[in-house]
Design a protein around this nucleic acid. Structure first.
Lengths: 175, 175
DNA sequence: CCGTGATTTCGATCTTTACCGAAAGAACCG
DNA sequence: CGGTTCTTTCGGTAAAGATCGAAATCACGG
């Protein structure tokens, strides 16, 4: 499949950007390609378009599936697995955040909590204070995240798109 | 310098966690060590404690300085550069977010804006729609971020620590 | 302006990670 | 059941990234 120059630019940039955030470049590119594609693609089309090995595409697709942001589609008269992006950009964003939080933030939260338990049963006061502060940051963020998680995408978008939303909120919480 | 088992665990975990977010493990470890340290450390102490080459520490410290989260301290009768964490965990968090946003999100925003300009001057409608949606997500996030950025850490912490904050906010924005 | 100690630079390794492609494995058809 | 087509696994290789340590540079006191 041929890509327009703009599509190419987007996909390449997406790959580089992903890399900086600890995401495999090829995986990010596959994601970018699927995102732009008007219809579901199969592994071979992706492989051809991005010039990467079929096997690499296979692995990448599974990775994206495990994040929950793409799905398999089957169409009549086509034996190949075709893939498409699930939901809109906002949902996608939420899925990615959720996935990374669960795999990377939650374990840290666990570690900090354990450390805190041990430190409270006698440990260096300075360490206790520092770990305590960090734990507080993580707990607060976690709690905020959980609350926001419950709100529908629709509601979030609606509110986020109102101009000057933060100052409006601040008015409700005076000094 | 000797580390307690808890400090070790924290620093090691911090390093691994950093790696997953595209941060050099050693840099993250240096950061973790400085975070726990009751007083400023010089490069050699860090090098010894973490068992990494002196030069690697030097580079790592500069990296952390460029993020704006550590500072150099000089004390009388000591010719070495000593380093310490700047501000509390919340400020640290803000600095890191700011740094990464500027270097990694802003360029993407730029790319999307450019792409959108080109697409509006005639381009595939589907691509235009998809890039448009992604751009909207980035613009909304960017705008939200800029608004929050202006609010003092103090205020954010105060509000964040109130229980159930999100549902309180939602009450002000009925359907 | 020399000497000492601290710091940084930089090329050479070492380690990790990504990627390929051949072969094995599934799913499906007749 | 073979045969066909699609998918996955996996060992080897290549590329990228991290780390080291020697040498260059810098900073400052005497």
């Amino acid at each position: 499949m041929e890509l327009t120059p703009i599509a190419q630019k987007f996909i390449v940039h997406w790959g580089e950007m992903g890399e900086k955030w600890g995401i495999n470049r090829t995986v990010a590119q596959i994601h970018g390609l699927l995102y732009l594609s008007p219809e579901p693609l199969n592994a071979e089309e992706i492989s051809d378009t991005l010039s990467v090995a079929r096997s690499t595409v296979s692995v990448g697709l599974h990775e994206l599936e495990s994040w929950g942001i793409i799905r398999v589609v089957h169409t009549l008269g086509d034996r190949t697995d075709r893939f498409e992006i699930k939901g809109d950009v906002y949902e996608m964003f939420r899925f990615i955040v959720e996935y990374r939080k669960r795999r990377e933030v939650d374990p840290t939260l666990g570690m900090l909590r354990e450390a805190m338990v041990e430190l409270e049963a006698g440990g260096d006061p300075h360490t206790r204070e520092k770990i305590g502060e960090m734990l507080a940051l993580f707990e607060t963020s976690d709690s905020l995240y959980r609350q926001i998680q419950k709100v529908s995408t629709q509601t979030i978008v609606r509110i986020a798109k109102m101009g000057d939303i933060v100052s409006k909120i601040l008015k409700f919480f005076p000094e």
